[in-house]
Design a protein around this nucleic acid. Sequence first.
RNA 1: GGGCGGAUAGCUCAGUUGGUUAGAGCGCCUGCCUUACAAGCAGGAGGUCACAGGUUCGAACCCUGUUUCGCCCACCA
Length: 900
Amino acid sequence: MEKIETQKQTGPAAEAALPAPEAELSSRYQPQLIEDAWYQRWEREGLFTANPASEQPPFSIVIPPPNVTGSLHIGHALNNTLQDILSRQQRMQGKDVLWVPGCDHAGIATQNVVERELAKQKTSRHDLGREKFIARVWEWKQQYGGTIMRQLRRLGSSLDWTRERFTLDDGLSAAVREVFVRLYAEGLIYRGDYIINWCPRCQTALSDIETEHQDTSGHFWHICYPFADGTGSLVVATTRPETLLGDTAVAVNPQDERYRQMIGKKIMLPLQRVEIPVIADDYVDKDFGSGVVKITPAHDLNDFLVMQRHPDEVGIRNVMNPDGTMNKNAGHKYAGLDRFECRKAVLADLEAEGLLVKTEDHQHAVGHCYRCHTVVEPYLSRQWFVKMKPLAEPAMAAVRDGRIRFTPESWTKVYLDWMENIRDWCISRQIWWGHRIPAWYCQNKECQEVVVVKEAPPACPKCGGRVEQDPDVLDTWFSSALWPFSTLGWPESTPELQRYYPTSVLVTSWDIIFFWVARMAMMGLKFMGDVPFRDVCINSLVGDAEGKKMSKSKGNTVDPLDLMEHTGADGLRFTMALIETQSRYVAFTPDRLESCRNFMNKIWNAARFVLMNLDAEVSVAPQGQPDFADQWILSRLDGTVERVQNALAVYRFSEAAQALYDFVWHEFCDWYLEVIKARLAGDPDIRRSAQSHLLAVWDETLRLLHPFLPFITEEIWSHLPGKRDFLMRAAWPVPQAGRRKPEVEQEMGLVMEVIYAVRNIRGEMNVPPAARVKLLIRPTGTQAGSLASHVGVIKELAKVSELVIDASAVKPPMSATAVAGGLELFIPLEGLIDLAKERERLAKEIRTLEELLTRQEAKLSNEQFISRAPAEVVAAEQAKREDYRQRRERLQHNLQQLSA
RNA sequence: GGGCGGAUAGCUCAGUUGGUUAGAGCGCCUGCCUUACAAGCAGGAGGUCACAGGUUCGAACCCUGUUUCGCCCACCA
């Protein structure tokens, strides 16, 4: 109630902005005049709002929350179009639909954006301090954060805006703390010193999957490590010579005969002039390189693990600052140098000392920050981690036993493979924008208690000392992992949570299966005891015309808002549906968009035709018996309903869109509308019957189209006769067995064949379009009877002046001939016919038939085929051969006659 | 190193358990401003489905291998 009141206040202004529906459709399709208005009407009427108290079965989707920093790109357009198609279809099918909108705070990304703003103003987050900086980000969020949500409205997304969420909302933040505290209590969250991926530019830890490995051509430097006692040396190879400064051991394989004697000896580490031991560890592959590995525990994961296995022999020396420069442990000569500068300096110095044995080119994968693409440094630091194995087990089971089902199915393996090899998740980030880790440390040096609780404790519960909260925040994906239940009110037991969890389907792209889908599965099972979604529909990534991934840096992006400006939201939506074929990448090409815009125009014009041929009093209830053409189109429509329904049920959006396109354009417009014109111009009774059936078919077609094309269909619908509620809440069509008429479709097929054949002759013979021709049909079988009732249609659509059907007809001398479905067609073309041309045309047709016949004979002379193929297949092939034979004979006969 | 996906018309792509003359959009050619639509209508050309084997009565589709393009994962310094 309250909501409606507030809306009324803004009502008059909004109302004034809406154009009053006109009696007729404008002669041109102008989407920009109708789309925003309809969205406002739907939203004001509460048509997007779910009703937890509803009697209807629920259907729910949570949006993959876009980054607050973002604006709508083509991938969002695709992803949200698909979700909206499903939501609208389900709503029309009587479900109580909840599609939850919202944004992700996108920790590092957003912080980077605001920091760049600050840099422009010659200041920084460090100048501002934590509190002021965070306030600044919130300000920024208030100002720009709504952009993408507005753009989703523009696209027509039927999101329930009364339930919009943001990952930093109070409720969602409470959920984050709840989860953290519970996992910590169970020992599934822990804190420790490990090698993590460190971005020296963002100055934060990253998880493994936030590190993107790129193959890079680098070098392999072989360096001489002399023994301390002067008895020789070992050669080690490295791709990162600057880490030499942090070496605390050299390792060989214990089985390696070459080095067995050296184990336990001391190396005098070059440049650093410190002694380090030679140790033995199985990790060393004796067949790789020299079989000797330098051990740098503070800057390499494997080396760190080696150190842990040899705690008494191997020390640790961190030689780098968080910003990627060398620290004083690196030695005064190198301290302060950037890591890559230091690399050069180290190499130069080794060279000078004659210790650089050789330099090889080397291809290797180098980790880069997924946010800023800086080279990531393996770095020893104290971080928070989630223990993943116990969480992954149930998440794997849920997929294995089908409680979660991927579409396309092939993603299942990707998901499971990753889960099988999962490693603990580093969740702490050294940034400020995000959920602060709910851990407090007692400042009393004697105590040092770590307190992990949901709300800040006033003092240390153990010693009463002062506590300070951990300065770090959580990985953004930690809160995203809770999205399917945190948005529904968890940990409170809300009606929404009861009703809409598990959600029905998750629609997302494959690039975030690990980041998001897998983690939601784990967290949902852990905290809700059930999967977060039943189906995972994986949509494509949209590339450019060359199939390249779109990115701002490549400059090959297209702005969906520009596209909608040009084509309307519906045109873009249809393009998105048509393009989604479940392959990894789909190419966005402007001609595809163009053809969809043309389709919108076709629909608009069909609507105009329908409207201008309806009288105001026409009722939707069909009057009188359906005519042959009505039966045909209803049969085709019914098939289309089934195709679209089946395709959507398995998320084959392209197939569904294609079925709609074909039906509307090539059946409804090309044939039904053309055929019905005569009846609409006929006697009042005939006209009325035609109108009512036309309206019924069009009515249902609009319903079928609506989930794909909500705006244009709603607009057209509103102009149809009769007092009409929103199309958006009309019932979606269902297939009705009684409407399928294979015999009618077959008969219509024959009529179409005749018309095609005549048109072909006209086209090939260059008969002027306006000129009418005579047509003589000689039936051979039983088709004559059925054909007789379609004389009018054939005459009209094939531009025939006079049509004779006669089994004893004789081919008139100067005439063109064709054979269609057991019928022989003669078109007398005295004066018009070009004999040579007709001979050529016939000869070509005969050649085609001859080729087919040869193939057919070969097939049928194969005894294996006759004996082993199913009888109906053999029969069909035989019938085909007969058909080809007859047609060839007729045409040959006619050709001879023509030559005579 | 492991895994995945693609190779079909000039271009971008469909082709759902193997069985009509392999389809669409765009482009191309011919003719049309025919009162819903030139953002359109009618007709047409264009493909040894990457290659080589195999399974089968029958393969674009299933199997094996090859070539080639792309992607994902990975603690060989």
